[in-house]
């Protein structure tokens, strides 16, 4: 059938896999943005820079301390998450009584500063990060070759995304988070420390970005601009999925990665813009996003 369309199956599945990989990063990043936006009501423009920091922390752990990929997968998100919590406490928390726009401007400025500092120190040519030996090589599936590391990225992203979804939708902590998103004053009046919940939530959302950064390090080169390039697409994903929707950001992230991959097969010229075209259509037809609740 594929030959009938003039597309060899290797090309199709190869692009679908690439789409899934990109979708894995879109999902992880837009999920973090959604979690943060839900509770803090700020659009975290620093998200791309913190994703980049995740990759850099993994690189530094390896090159300065000899700590490898697997510990870095935990340590880098932890370190960047703590960095995020400090930023939230010291700066972002002062803006909650103001319009959303101020949070956006602050985090945009932070992104520029963080990226500038890393560019200054490490240049823009990119630093290599080896695929961990356990995941080197790949499988020949007959119809395509599947590199082990790329399969791992998709699986890890799915696990973390659905783990996050489960935590938010099905646990007591998640119930607190959802309630605080709706009515923080009342949750506080029940004896819950809402400011602490907000700080932890920001730290968690940021840690998700850093986790994506570590996953990305062996695929893309570790580069100060890696987040800036990605984050624009991720914002489009968030708009399409619906601001603040957890499941929406996961499904939309993976879905749009696949759509992008398919476009690269059938109309390569359109692959760079297809997500933005979809965004425009969604904004016209359903402004709250595919999974968003109309405000």
């Amino acid at each position: 059938m594929f030959e009938l369309l003039g597309i060899p199956p290797q090309a199709l599945f190869g692009q679908l896999l690439l789409g899934l990989i990109n979708g894995s990063f879109y999902a992880l990043l837009s999920l973090g943005l959604a979690v943060i936006f839900g509770l803090l009501n700020i659009i975290n423009f620093a998200h791309g820079a913190l994703y980049m920091m995740g990759a850099f922390v993994a690189w530094m752990l390896l090159n300065y301390l000899g700590i490898g990929y697997w510990p870095a997968l935990i340590l880098a998100p932890l370190a960047v998450g703590i960095f995020g919590m400090v930023i939230e406490r010291l700066m972002i928390a002062r803006l909650y009584h103001l319009d959303h726009l101020y949070g956006l401007l602050l985090t945009f400025g932070l992104a520029l500063i963080i990226q500038g500092l890393f560019r200054n120190e490490y240049g823009i040519s990119g630093l290599p990060y080896q695929i961990p030996t356990q995941l080197a090589g790949g499988q020949n599936l007959g119809f395509m070759f599947l590199p082990n590391y790329r399969a791992w990225v998709v699986v890890a992203s799915l696990l973390v995304c659905f783990g996050t979804w489960f935590m938010i939708e099905k646990t007591r902590l998640g119930a607190l988070l959802r309630a605080a998103t709706e009515n923080p004053a009342l949750v506080g009046a029940f004896g819950i420390n809402v400011p602490r919940l907000i700080t932890l939530t920001y730290g968690f959302g940021v840690a998700l970005a850093a986790f994506a950064g570590v996953l990305a390090a062996p695929i893309y080169s570790v580069n100060p601009n890696m987040g800036a390039d990605l984050i624009i697409v991720v914002f489009a994903v968030v708009v399409i999925g619906g601001m603040g929707s957890i499941l929406g950001s996961i499904v939309t992230g993976f879905g749009l990665g696949l759509v992008e991959g398919l476009t690269r097969v059938f109309y390569p010229e359109g692959s760079a813009v297809v997500i933005f075209v979809i965004m425009a259509i969604v904004l016209l037809v359903k402004p709250a996003g595919l999974f968003g609740r109309a405000a």
Partner: peptide, 25 residues
């Protein structure tokens, strides 16, 4: 503890979650 005028039932929580939300003090 307060029961606010608008009742403050959380839409994104089930009845069970609403009931169990306030911690025992």
């Amino acid at each position: 503890a307060i029961v606010p005028e608008e009742r403050g039932i959380f839409a994104s929580l089930s009845v069970e979650e609403n009931l169990m939300l306030p911690p025992v003090v």
